[in-house]
Amino acid sequence: MEKLHGTQVLLRLLSEDDVEPLTAILAQPEIARWWGVYDAARVRKELLESELPAYAVEVDGEVIGSIQYDEEPAPDYRHAGMDLFLSSDRHGRGYGSDAVRTLARHLIHDRGHHRLVIDPQVTNEAAIRCYESVGFRKVGLMRAYERGPDGRWHDCLMLEVLKDELT
């Protein structure tokens, strides 16, 4: 689907016009802390041209971030994962929860998933609170799971939500 409507946000598939605002958002220190260094070429390659569906997160016509998902297609293990970033000046307003909930509903109701996962670094407390607010639960610690922008390996949490647990 090209557009998904949340309560506060609109999710729409990325376009070339989104490269500049997303590059600026990813350059914010609070975002770069988790995502690393992005220039326009990397945004274009990893978000716009990726095989993974990626959406711009909009509020009142302004791009405030991006959310994307991936799917495990094997029938016996079918599930989807997602990832999100929002402009740091938009944190704490419910936009992240609304974006996650909106994409989760699409993945469950339109794409047929019964289980969704997300895997923030254990120290990303704001992201964890956001995901828990829509029903994700901590199910495990993944040690030395992700290489951070600092070049070191960091622990991440595995959080999941089942179809009937989404709030």
Rank of each mutant, 00 (worst) to 15 (best):
V9A: 05
R105H: 15
E72M: 13
L47N: 08
G81V: 09
K163V: 08
R33S: 00
C130Q: 07
R93A: 15
P29D: 10
A41E: 15
L159S: 05
I108E: 07
V122A: 09
G36C: 10
G96Y: 02
L141H: 12
D76K: 12
H106Y: 15
F85W: 13
L107I: 06
R137G: 11
R93W: 12
L11G: 02
R93D: 13
D155N: 15
A24M: 09
Y131K: 02
A99Y: 01
D18A: 04
R44N: 10
L86K: 00
L22C: 09
A104D: 00
R101W: 08
W35T: 03
V37T: 14
E49T: 08
Q8R: 13
R137C: 11
G148T: 06
L84M: 15
L22A: 09
R111N: 06
R143H: 01
R42T: 14
P73T: 12
D17N: 11
G112K: 07
L159A: 12
T167H: 12
F85D: 04
I25W: 05
N124M: 04
D98I: 02
F136G: 01
G36E: 03
A24Y: 00
H79F: 13
V59D: 06
A74W: 13
D76F: 10
E62F: 07
L107C: 08
G135F: 03
E16M: 05
T23W: 01
I108A: 10
K138L: 13
M158V: 14
E16W: 03
